[in-house]
Nucleic acid binder design. Structure first.
Lengths: 134, 134
DNA sequence: CTCCGTGCAAACGATTTGCACTATG
DNA sequence: CATAGTGCAAATCGTTTGCACGGAG
C-alpha cells in the first residue's frame, strides 16, 4: 500500500509543521478547517495515524486523555503542563538513563522509554498568581 | 468533605492491595464483582478517583487507553508491555535524572516527572517465539 | 481505470454524571 | 438524621469504522 499525497494530507502535514506545538487531532482539525471547511475529523485522525505509522510524524503517548502529534521524529522527551495540558520539548541527555539494564532485570526486552516531566507552564503560573490575589 | 468507609470502598482497596498488579478500573470491577455482584462500575471509578485524590492510592497516567491504579504510593517508575499492556514496577535511581533543571530552563515550575520504559514482557516474548515457529 | 482517500454518520470503549435511593458516622 | 456514597442508565469524550463516493497516479 503506497501513500498518495492528497490536499488534505498535505495541509495536515503543513499545519502540524508550522505550529511548533504538539497538537491533538481536534486542535489540528480546527486549524485545517479554516482553510478547508469541508474536511472531516475522521480524515485528520486517519492521516495522523497513517503518517505516524510510516514514521513521517510521531504519535506522543503522554498524560491526558488526548493523543498528541509531533512533527519532530527525533528522539526527545516532553514536559507537560498539568493545568492547560500543553506539551513542550525537553532535551535530556538520554545516556544518563540506563533503562535497558533495569528492563532486562525484569525479564523484559526493551523497545524504548520516555521521560515525562510534569509541571506548570509559565503562562499558567501567571494565571495562578492573578487568581491568588483575588 | 470527609470519607466514609463503605463496604464497597473497603473491598476495592483490599483487592487492589492484594493484587500485586496495576489494575485498570474494569479489571478491578471484575474482581470485586465476584464478591459483591451488585457493585456498579461507576462506584469503582468514583472510588479510584477519590482515593487517588486523597493520596491513598496512585493513578498511573501511562501508555494505553486505560488508566491504571497502584496501591503503592511511593515514588517509583513503570515498565509497560507493548503487547499485553501489563504494567510492572521499575526501580530507577531517581537522583540520576536532573529534570528539575531542564524544566526550569523552559520556564516551567516542576511538580514531578516519570520515566516509562516500554518493552515486551517475558510472557509475550514466549508467545512471539511460538508464533514465529509456525 | 484502479484502488487509496474522503466525508458522513453511526459505532465504539473508557469514563463521567444526574438522579433517586441507601447507609455511614 | 445529615449527607457521603451507591446503582442504574444515560450522557460524554476521544477515537474508530462502514459505506458509498471522489480523485490521485
Amino acid at each position: 500500500m503506497q501513500l498518495r499525497m492528497t490536499n488534505q494530507r498535505e495541509m495536515i502535514l503543513r499545519e502540524l509543521k508550522k505550529s511548533k506545538r504538539h497538537l491533538s487531532a481536534d486542535e489540528l482539525y480546527d486549524i485545517v478547517k479554516k482553510v478547508m471547511p469541508r474536511i472531516s475529523l475522521a480524515t485528520v485522525y486517519r492521516n495522523l495515524e497513517i503518517l505516524s505509522e510510516k514514521g513521517v510524524i510521531r504519535k506522543l503517548e503522554i498524560s491526558g486523555r488526548q493523543k498528541r502529534f509531533d512533527f519532530d521524529v527525533s528522539d526527545h522527551d516532553h514536559i507537560y503542563c498539568a493545568m492547560c495540558h500543553k506539551v513542550d520539548n525537553l532535551n535530556i541527555e538520554r545516556k544518563n538513563v540506563n533503562s535497558e539494564q533495569l528492563g532486562v532485570e525484569a525479564g523484559y526486552s526493551i523497545t524504548g522509554y520516555r521521560v515525562e516531566v510534569i509541571g506548570i507552564c509559565p503562562e499558567c503560573q501567571k494565571k495562578e498568581k492573578i487568581k491568588e490575589k483575588k
